[in-house]
Computed example of a mutant assay.
Amino acid sequence: MITATKVKLYPNEGQKILLEKHFGSCRFVYNYFLAKRDEYYITHRDAQRSSLNYFDTNNMLIELKKEKPWLYEVNSQSLQMSLRFLDNAFKNFFHKNADHPRFKRKGINEYFAVPQHIKIQGNR
């Protein structure tokens, strides 16, 4: 069973634009909810539940997409995977396996995940 495939792409101009939209949107969602989780922790530090989880941020993503309609231009599962990556980063932080998650910057190790609906035919 193949769980992941790493590929090198040679996109045309239209595909380059779509890839850049995916990179930018996923980076925006990751950074936006990293700031929201930090803000929530600061304001609810003494509460019984002092942190947001994946499901909370996923529900907030629906509202964010209504505010920012350009997020509809990319695959919604890619945006949800950004939230999964953020949640895993916080879990590693809370278990003392990593430092606090950092904000992502443009052009530095950009990636996104597409968990479904990928077809590979031959070498394409």
Score class of each variant (00 low, 15 high):
Ile62Ser: 07
Phe94Lys: 09
Glu110Cys: 07
Gln121Cys: 11
Ala113Ile: 13
Leu79Ile: 05
His44Gln: 14
Arg37Val: 05
Thr3Asn: 09
Glu73Arg: 02
Leu83Val: 05
Gln77Ile: 07
Asp99Lys: 14
Glu67Cys: 04
His117Lys: 12
Pro69Thr: 11
His100Thr: 08
Leu52Asn: 01
Thr5Ser: 07
Tyr32Met: 02
Arg37Ala: 11
Lys119Met: 11
Ser25Leu: 00
Pro69Ala: 06
Ser78Met: 05
Val29Pro: 00
His44Thr: 12
His44Ser: 12
Ala35Gln: 07
Phe112Ala: 02
Arg84Trp: 03
His44Lys: 13
Thr3Gln: 11
Tyr72His: 15
Glu39Gly: 08
Gly122Lys: 04
Phe28Ala: 01
Leu64Cys: 00
Met60Leu: 15
Leu52Ile: 08
Tyr72Val: 04
Asp38Thr: 09
Val114Pro: 02
Ala4Lys: 10
Asn58Thr: 14
Phe85Asn: 15
Met1Phe: 06
Ala4Ser: 14
Lys119Glu: 14
Thr3Ala: 07
His22Phe: 06
Ile62Met: 09
Arg124Tyr: 14
Asp87Tyr: 07
Ser78Pro: 03
Tyr72Thr: 10
Ala47Gln: 15
Gln15Glu: 15
Ser25Arg: 00
Ile118Ala: 11
Gly122Phe: 04
Glu110Arg: 04
Tyr54Ile: 03
Met1Glu: 08
Leu9His: 02
Val114Ile: 15
Val7His: 04
Asn75Lys: 05
Asn12Lys: 09
His95Glu: 15
Ile42Asn: 13
Leu71Val: 05
Asp38Phe: 10
Asn58Gln: 08
Tyr10Glu: 07
Arg49Glu: 15
His22Trp: 02
Val7Asn: 06
Pro69Asn: 06
Thr57Pro: 00
Tyr72Ala: 13
Gln48Leu: 12
Gly107Val: 05
Ser82Ile: 05
Gln77Ser: 12
Ile2Gln: 13
His100Asn: 06
Gln15Tyr: 04
Cys26Ser: 10
Leu86Arg: 06
Arg105Cys: 04
Val114Asp: 03
Ile17Pro: 00
Glu20Ala: 14
Gly14Asp: 11
Lys66His: 14
Ala113Lys: 08
Asp46His: 14
Arg49Leu: 13
Gly14Gln: 12
Tyr32His: 14
Gln48Val: 13
Ser82Arg: 00
Leu86Thr: 08
Ile120Cys: 06
Leu79Val: 06
His117Glu: 10
Lys106Glu: 08
Glu63Cys: 02
Leu19Asp: 01
Arg45Thr: 10
Gln80Arg: 12
Leu79Tyr: 02
Lys68Gly: 01
Lys36Glu: 15
Leu64Ile: 01
Met1Val: 09
Arg102Thr: 13
Ser50Arg: 13
Pro11Lys: 10
Leu64Asn: 00
Asp46Thr: 11
Phe90Gln: 00
Arg84Glu: 07
Leu18Arg: 14
Leu34Asn: 01
Tyr10Gln: 09
Lys65Val: 07
Lys104Gly: 00
Lys119Asp: 10
Ile118Arg: 12
Tyr111Val: 05
Asp56Cys: 03
